Computed example of a mutant assay.
Amino acid sequence: MRDYLFISDYRQNETCRESFNQLAMQVFQLDFRKWYNQGFWTDDYICYSYMDKDRIIANASINKMVVTAYGKEYKALQIGTVMTHPDYRQQGLSAKLMHHIIDQYEREYDFLYLFANDTVLDFYPKFGFEKVQESRFFLNTAELTKHPRQKSALRKLDGSNEADLALMQEFAHERIPVSTRLGIKNNPSLLMFYFLLAFPDEVYYVEEEDVIVLFSQTDRHLNIFDIISKRPFDVEQVVSHLIHADTNTIQFHFIPDNDNQNIVSARITEPHDTLFVRPFLFDDQQPILFPLTSHA
């Protein structure tokens, strides 16, 4: 391997930051600029990279998390944005970055985790990560539509609007975990990424419930990606403001805090992203689903 420069924690370095973004756009079609130009790249997100001259050629990032699960809190580290420029692959750069991150953080955190696509499923077990099967959660709306409730007007939020952006920031900083079964706390930076970049057209404020909901409706299927609230909420009450007469099923992209027998779970057999954990600390008899908006 050629002698490349190893660098990290360069969010204040404009040249490195822009080069990182160019690589992310090339590999993942992700443009971070709107996120970091507005000050949402914080110390919770740190890049570890190799540089050839003035260009970032490989990267693995860490995102510091607090994971709440079944009455316990865990200090967790999520690894993400693992990428190598096509001209520099097959040189072991990603492996070196992974070893560096594990060596630096494994004694400081309760566990490390990441999400991987199906092209690299054999890569992460080499570093002691265990593949974990997550679950999906669905609700048939038949019972809800039998007892319709007064709906609150939904206000679509626009990240380019100053007042809407301030509301998003307020909720990002003050939110409670979306679920007591498995949730994330104290990570406003990542949530702002989802507000501004991942779901810019799916952010709505439900005034009556005082919650922000990320959701989309496709045909008769409602996807609820996240419910952001500053206090405990009734998930069915929130859902009642989102469904239409033709809504048939709802999929929650988190574990809903509700004992409604109509909410069913099923193991994900063909995930878009596969969860890997090191070490695995959870009860494998309990369903696992990290909230979608916790994926870094």
Rank of each mutant, 00 (worst) to 15 (best):
residue 75 K to F: 15
residue 139 L to N: 09
residue 186 N to Q: 13
residue 200 P to Q: 09
residue 239 V to S: 12
residue 236 E to T: 08
residue 225 F to M: 09
residue 260 N to E: 03
residue 273 D to K: 11
residue 108 E to M: 12
residue 223 N to L: 08
residue 3 D to V: 12
residue 80 G to I: 05
residue 21 N to T: 02
residue 155 R to N: 13
residue 83 M to Q: 12
residue 115 F to D: 03
residue 13 N to S: 08
residue 241 H to D: 05
residue 79 I to V: 15
residue 94 S to G: 07
residue 86 P to C: 10
residue 187 N to Y: 09
residue 277 V to I: 14
residue 155 R to W: 13
residue 60 A to G: 10
residue 21 N to F: 06
residue 261 Q to M: 11
residue 41 W to Y: 11
residue 68 T to N: 08
residue 47 C to P: 03
residue 127 F to I: 02
residue 281 L to Q: 11
residue 38 Q to P: 01
residue 270 E to F: 14
residue 20 F to L: 12
residue 77 L to Q: 01
residue 68 T to A: 08
residue 115 F to V: 02
residue 140 N to H: 15
residue 48 Y to D: 01
residue 37 N to Q: 15
residue 111 F to L: 11
residue 108 E to P: 01
residue 215 F to P: 00
residue 266 A to V: 02
residue 47 C to D: 14
residue 206 V to I: 15
residue 31 D to V: 00
residue 74 Y to M: 04
residue 138 F to I: 07
residue 174 E to P: 00
residue 67 V to S: 04
residue 79 I to N: 05
residue 288 I to R: 00
residue 70 Y to N: 09
residue 11 R to A: 09
residue 276 F to A: 02
residue 266 A to P: 00
residue 220 R to W: 10
residue 80 G to C: 04
residue 19 S to T: 01
residue 192 M to A: 06
residue 27 V to M: 03
residue 102 I to G: 04
residue 161 N to S: 10
residue 82 V to Y: 13
residue 171 F to C: 01
residue 210 D to F: 12
residue 24 A to D: 04
residue 192 M to C: 08
residue 202 E to W: 06
residue 41 W to L: 09
residue 280 F to N: 09
residue 110 D to E: 01
residue 247 T to D: 05
residue 263 I to G: 09
residue 163 A to M: 12
residue 283 D to G: 00
residue 128 G to Y: 11
residue 4 Y to L: 13
residue 217 Q to F: 07
residue 7 I to Y: 01
residue 58 A to F: 10
residue 274 T to Y: 04
residue 5 L to D: 14
residue 145 T to Q: 15
residue 164 D to K: 10
residue 217 Q to E: 09
residue 285 Q to V: 05
residue 178 V to Y: 07
residue 54 D to P: 05
residue 262 N to G: 11
residue 32 F to N: 02
residue 137 F to E: 05
residue 100 H to G: 10
residue 225 F to W: 10
residue 73 E to T: 15
residue 235 V to F: 04
residue 89 R to I: 02
residue 106 E to L: 09
residue 8 S to C: 10
residue 171 F to G: 00
residue 263 I to M: 08
residue 152 S to K: 00
residue 44 D to M: 14
residue 159 G to P: 03
residue 209 E to Q: 13
residue 264 V to Y: 07
residue 96 K to H: 15
residue 210 D to K: 13
residue 160 S to C: 05
residue 195 F to R: 00
residue 106 E to D: 15
residue 203 V to S: 03
residue 264 V to T: 13
residue 196 L to P: 05
residue 239 V to R: 06
residue 2 R to Q: 14
residue 10 Y to C: 04
residue 280 F to Q: 08
residue 87 D to F: 13
residue 45 Y to G: 03
residue 13 N to W: 04
residue 105 Y to A: 08
residue 13 N to T: 08
residue 210 D to R: 11
residue 131 K to I: 09
residue 10 Y to R: 03
residue 167 L to K: 14
residue 21 N to W: 10
residue 276 F to T: 00
residue 128 G to R: 06
residue 119 T to W: 12
residue 159 G to V: 01
residue 174 E to W: 08
residue 77 L to F: 04
residue 58 A to I: 03
residue 182 L to A: 02
residue 128 G to V: 07
residue 6 F to I: 00
residue 216 S to K: 15
residue 98 M to T: 05
residue 212 I to L: 03
